[in-house]
Simulated assay, not measured.
Amino acid sequence: MERTRLYIFAAVFFGVALAGTLGFMHVEGLGALDALYFSVVTITTVGYGDIHPVTATGKLLAMALILSGGGTFFGILAAAVEMFLGRREKRVRGQKLDMIIGLFFSQVGSTLVRRLIRADAGVAFLKENLDVSLRWDKENFRKAQAILRDYAYDVDMAALDLPALGKLLSDNSEFLVRLLENPNILEHEAFTSLLQAVFHLKEELAHRRDLEHLPRADLEHLRVDVRRIYSQILIQWLHYLDHIKENFPYFFSFQCRVTPFLAGEDATVRE
């Protein structure tokens, strides 16, 4: 929006300057450079006084330029400042949002990804295509995200430890609520949708007495909720890893050492 407004003001400004230049050339008999010079100093209200209109028509044209072009010129300045400040504010908001997403994966998300991947019937396929390493670049992340867009997300509920999953979400209930209350996440619809799905599953699991002996119909109901999270969190997880690789390579190195495809979460550096 700010850029469009700047372009409009700039177009009007140059249009008025061109009309003024041609007008002064005609009514005042000025050369092209002098006419352009006089149009610009008139529009910008600088007015050095070295060139001034001597005809009545020229004076009327100068007044018209001041009234029409002066506001346009200051509109350009205002739009340029607004665009600069808007970009800066957007960058700051983006940094805050990246920090929030990082906190989510550090506290809950990475463990959730690990549990869901290990309950996936296609874990071998995911390991082949999503086992992130230090060698990954932008192209690797792009290909992995393209694969996830068409992935089936086939979760085996029998392989998913629902009591442990329920405890994980319950223990982090207050943390999840605080994330949802943060106004910065509203600008990231995909991440907001993921948080809402996670919170919904937390509520579903919290309102069941025995998560180890659920009827098949109820497991199918929960499977829909789990797949909703799974299909979103893997994509957000890849975005998160891509971000920290570019901005925090030391933390990306840590994430590669605790990848969900490893048997444990030991981050010890080995030769």
Rank of each mutant, 00 (worst) to 15 (best):
E2A: 14
R3H: 13
R3N: 13
T4P: 00
T4S: 12
R5W: 04
I8W: 09
I8A: 10
F9E: 12
A11Y: 12
F13G: 06
A17R: 09
L18M: 07
L18V: 07
L18D: 01
G20V: 08
F24V: 00
F24S: 00
H26L: 10
E28L: 01
G29T: 12
G31A: 13
A35C: 02
L36V: 09
Y37N: 03
Y37P: 01
V41A: 10
T42M: 01
T44C: 09
T45H: 11
T45W: 05
H52G: 04
P53D: 07
L60A: 06
A64I: 01
L67K: 03
S68Q: 13
S68F: 08
G69Q: 03
G71H: 03
T72W: 04
G75E: 10
I76W: 03
A78K: 13
A78D: 02
A80Q: 08
A80H: 03
V81A: 14
F84K: 15
L85P: 06
R88C: 06
R91F: 11
V92I: 12
L97H: 10
D98W: 11
D98T: 14
M99S: 10
M99C: 01
G102Y: 10
Q107L: 08
S110A: 14
T111M: 08
L112D: 07
V113G: 10
R114V: 04
R114C: 08
R114Q: 12
R114I: 02
I117R: 09
A119R: 01
K127Y: 01
E128G: 10
N129V: 02
S133R: 09
S133H: 07
R135A: 13
W136R: 01
D137L: 03
K138A: 15
E139D: 12
E139N: 14
E139F: 05
N140C: 04
N140A: 02
A146G: 05
L148K: 04
L148H: 03
R149N: 04
D150N: 11
Y151N: 08
Y153H: 05
A158E: 12
L160F: 05
D161G: 07
L162D: 02
A164F: 02
A164C: 00
K167E: 14
L169V: 04
D171Y: 05
S173L: 01
S173Y: 02
S173V: 00
E174Q: 14
E174I: 10
L176S: 06
P183V: 07
P183I: 04
N184H: 12
N184L: 10
N184E: 14
L186H: 15
E187N: 14
H188D: 15
A190C: 02
F191H: 03
F191E: 06
T192V: 11
T192E: 12
L194K: 03
L201Q: 08
R208K: 15
R208V: 14
R209E: 15
D210Q: 13
A217H: 15
L219F: 03
H221R: 15
R223P: 12
V224W: 02
D225C: 14
D225G: 11
D225W: 07
V226I: 11
R227N: 05
Q232Y: 08
L234K: 05
W237P: 11
L241C: 02
L241Y: 02
L241I: 00
I244S: 13
K245I: 01
K245N: 07
N247W: 07
F251K: 13
F251R: 14
S253C: 01
Q255G: 01
C256A: 12
R257G: 09
V258K: 11
T259D: 13
L262A: 10
E265A: 11
